[in-house]
Every structure is written in C-alpha cells, then in structure tokens.
Simulated assay, not measured.
Amino acid sequence: MPGVSFIKVLFLYPIFYYQNCMDAQSGDCFNNDWSNQVAECAGILFKGRFCCEDQISLQINNIVGLKFRFGFTIVKIDSWDPGVDNIKVIAEDEVLDTLSFGPYEGTSMCFNTDYQDLFASYSYMFNLPQGKNSLKITLKGYFNEKVENESWGAKRFTLEMFIPCVEFYSECNFQGQAWRICNGYQTSQVRDIPFEIKSIIIANGIQVKMRNPKYNSGQTQTFTSSQQCLSSYQFPKYNQNG
C-alpha cells in the first residue's frame, strides 16, 4: 500500500532577505546593486553622490511574500533647502515617505564645509499584492542645484520578510500555473494541489519537506532554496506545519 504523499512547510520569520553596503568600509558598496557610484564621507563609504533628479533602484525578481520591511541610511550632504529638496522612498508605485532636511542639520564632515552633513536611518513596513512575485524599491531625488552644493547618498540597505510565502509551479523555471502557501494564513490540513509540481520559489529561512511514493523511493525530501526543475511530484494532500 503506498505511503501518503505530503508537503510540510516550516516558516522561520522575519526572514532577513537582503543587505548591501553595510559597514563603514564595506566592500559590497562597490557591486552594482542600486548603483555603481560610490563616495566617501568621514571614512564612511556610501552609494552616491547624487543630485538633481537622480534615482537609484533595486529590482528583485522571484520574491514571494506579502509583508516586508525596508531599511536604509540616507546621507544628507551640504545645503538642502527644506521644503524644496527631498528624497522620495518608493516601493513599487507607493510613496512610503518623503525625506527633507535643512542646510544646517548634522555636523560638518565632508565636501562643502560651509554646511552640515548627516547620516540618518529609516525603515518602512509595506505590503506586496497577493500573487505578485517581483519587487522594485526606488530612492528618487528632487534637487535644483549642482552636486557641489547639495547632494545625497544612501547605505545600509536591508530587506526583511514578515509574511513569507512559498510558491509552487506546474512547469520548470517558475513557469505555468502557480500555487502559493503563505505564513500565518488559514489553510486546511488536507487540500488538493491542482497540478504536478515542477519548480518552487523558496526564500532562505524556509524549509519545504515533500514526499511522493513514486519519487526517490518514497523518501522525504527537504528543500531550503528555490528549485528550478524537479522530477514530477504529484501530491494529493497538503499539510502546513503550524
């Protein structure tokens, strides 16, 4: 008599999904995330300097979750005019915040010594629509003078997942029909899955255990990272680990 096929998902959250340009002399500031433009102020590396209507963005594909927290440190350089010069923090098409400072906020650390500079940290919670598996975060500046007089930068970028999900696909390479399980959402212990599973998106910090009597001699398989192409899995039952 064949064993019972099942899926068990263990969510560990929040999931620390992404970080970049973290330390004072962090070498990862020099990668191409956000921008390949790097500057230094008082021995601290950051992405910048930017001016006018410069913007920097991070595009993440194959990310599956419903609730996130984005954090970063803004670098205010020289003479910002309050109410005129600002940075908009944007997740997808939603403006999460508008940051503005005065020319004398902070301390004089670098570049134009007539004005003060400032490192300030922020974080924002936001939701991603159900079914969407890509995310774009943007920092966009609005300035009316040259970089020698007013500029900005950013560092210590982080992204955490507070409601992570796992997404199963009917075809390899995350194509075809999709079926999603999210942490904290009510699901029945036994549920029909509408197709054979060929690929899975799994974020770090999530374990997916699956078993099919016809696959790998019926042994339970544990996956902790995304799977681009699996042999055919047919699961009549679903079990979420609460």
Rank of each mutant, 00 (worst) to 15 (best):
L139C: 03
M1R: 12
Q130G: 02
F143C: 00
L66M: 05
P2T: 04
N62F: 07
N144F: 06
M22Q: 11
E160Q: 12
G3N: 07
T107W: 00
I163R: 07
F70H: 12
A39M: 02
V75P: 06
S5W: 00
T113P: 11
N204R: 03
T138A: 03
G131P: 07
E53M: 07
E160Y: 09
I15E: 02
D93T: 14
T222F: 05
Y169L: 04
C110P: 08
M161D: 01
E148P: 00
Q37P: 00
S35A: 06
F195N: 14
D33I: 00
Q207H: 14
F111R: 11
S123C: 00
N183P: 01
I90N: 09
V84N: 15
K47Q: 02
D93Q: 12
S100G: 09
Y169Q: 02
K214N: 14
T98H: 04
R180A: 01
F126Q: 01
N112F: 05
S225R: 11
Q55A: 09
P82H: 01
K132L: 10
M109I: 02
A24S: 11
F119H: 14
N20Q: 13
D97S: 15
C51A: 12
G102D: 06
V208Y: 07
I74D: 06
R69F: 00
F174E: 04
G106L: 02
G106F: 10
V75F: 12
L58H: 10
P14R: 01
K76F: 13
N20I: 01
V95I: 15
R211H: 02
T224E: 13
N239Y: 05
S35H: 00
N144Y: 13
N32H: 11
N241V: 12
T113S: 14
S26V: 04
R49S: 13
Q228D: 07
R49E: 06
L135F: 10
E171V: 06
